[in-house]
Nucleic acid binder design. Structure first.
Lengths: 230, 230
DNA sequence: GCCATTTGTTGACAAATATCAATGAATTGT
DNA sequence: ACAATTCATTGATATTTGTCAACAAATGGC
């Protein structure tokens, strides 16, 4: 399970360039006094859907997946890479997690007490604005995903997932896919077998190369077209 | 198109019992000075996806649908009934609408300047908390819908949609469906024909009665089971 | 290094769902 | 009131997608 590791000081942490940029030294110190760092091995669960949600989580290294445990299978809402926070909608509603989170790669995270978080939210409008901006961006992304998964056929959905991985997550084009085929399927709302088949189809058509987990999108224009034609 | 109607005073408005309950008289007056009322005929569009979003909209009478215009078809995110607000995620991101809204029934709405809204958000933590709580509830609902639409089969999806209409929208059991079959389909992520067929199937099995737009769920237990077994 | 377990791959088949077409019913404008 | 349009319904058919089964490849524990 999760291991505590030596805590750094938030005041000098690289994380503060992210969501925390508008915080005063006093506020950073408040967070510093109410946080701890944890490390997770690849595959370990960070928290589970339905359990109480007493922390704001900030991913400092690694890669995590946020997913809803549905009817027999999972739906991956998003992948989270450093430095980004994980804070579900339950915080302001029922203090529970509405999705689960697992480490995809070995990861470390900072956990900040939710009470501290809400206290800062109420006292610092700039921080609140930035936080709302971020959850709004997430909502907009969820809408796009919603449309992709409910209105596109499998080829278009895989195309979208591949662009997501390449552009938003790994940030480069030949990329090493650290998520499994099952994860790719859970991200695209289909069975693992279908995801594999479409990957192969794209490979046969020369749109990309797949070698194990190394993936190279050779023809982004054509893939874009597949994404658009559904 | 939309018609202006005589403006009431926000300070005495019934709407203030809703999201606005934490506002001071001063803040209500600020809103009062920056709002106007509009009426929409059934079928009229309130705003369109992609257009600038300069207002917070508060539905005072009628019924509206919020929907994403996707690839050839629409996806209804939710229905909105009085008194509830409509404020998309674009407000804090790009000032654009990320979904369209249409009046399903004849409706009236109050439009409040977004600048005023954000000003109050920054100055009143209770209001901000309540607002975040509400968008969080919406997000949680979107998650449920997301799972329903991506992991359940058509019967389960229609079951979910019917419970949504009965419990959350019309608030009674024999209810008059003011949305069209196409809307029901757009709410359940399927073709209109499929939605109609499943409605008929449920009718044949004695789970409900359908007479035009009058719908009565006779056996909620069985419908619940259909919802749960996907 | 080797066995056990998981993960990836492929094919055949079955189930779910959309599309198309035809028709009836209801609604709207004039 | 009536034509014109939209909305609802049904059946036949094609397409999409999942499931099952078998097996290959990779990975982890010891």
């Amino acid at each position: 399970m999760a291991r505590f590791i030596q805590s750094h000081n938030c005041v000098d942490c690289k994380c503060k360039d992210s969501i925390f940029s508008s915080l005063s030294t006093t506020e950073l110190e408040l967070i510093n006094n109410n946080h701890y760092e944890v490390s997770f091995k690849a595959g370990e669960m960070m928290f589970k859907q339905g359990t109480p949600s007493p922390h704001f989580l900030c991913l400092t290294t690694g890669l995590a997946k946020l997913y809803i445990e549905g009817y027999g299978k999972n739906l991956i809402l998003s992948l989270v890479k450093p430095v980004d926070y994980i804070l579900g909608p339950g915080i302001y509603v029922d203090n529970r997690h509405h999705y689960s989170a697992s480490a995809v790669e070995d990861s470390t995270a900072c956990l900040v007490d939710v009470t501290t978080f809400r206290q800062i939210m109420r006292g610092n409008p700039d921080f609140a604005d930035e936080f709302i901006r971020r959850i709004s961006i997430m909502t907009i992304f969820n809408f796009e995903q919603f449309i992709s998964l409910t209105q596109k056929q499998m080829n278009g959905r895989i195309a979208d997932a591949l662009f997501y991985l390449s552009d938003k997550i790994y940030g480069r084009n030949p990329f090493e896919m650290t998520i499994s085929r099952q994860d790719l399927a859970d991200l695209s709302g289909m069975s693992k077998e279908s995801a594999i088949r479409i990957l192969k189809e794209f490979k046969d058509e020369g749109i990309l190369t797949v070698d194990g987990n190394s993936l190279h999108i050779l023809n982004p224009q054509q893939l874009k077209k597949i994404s658009e034609t559904g």
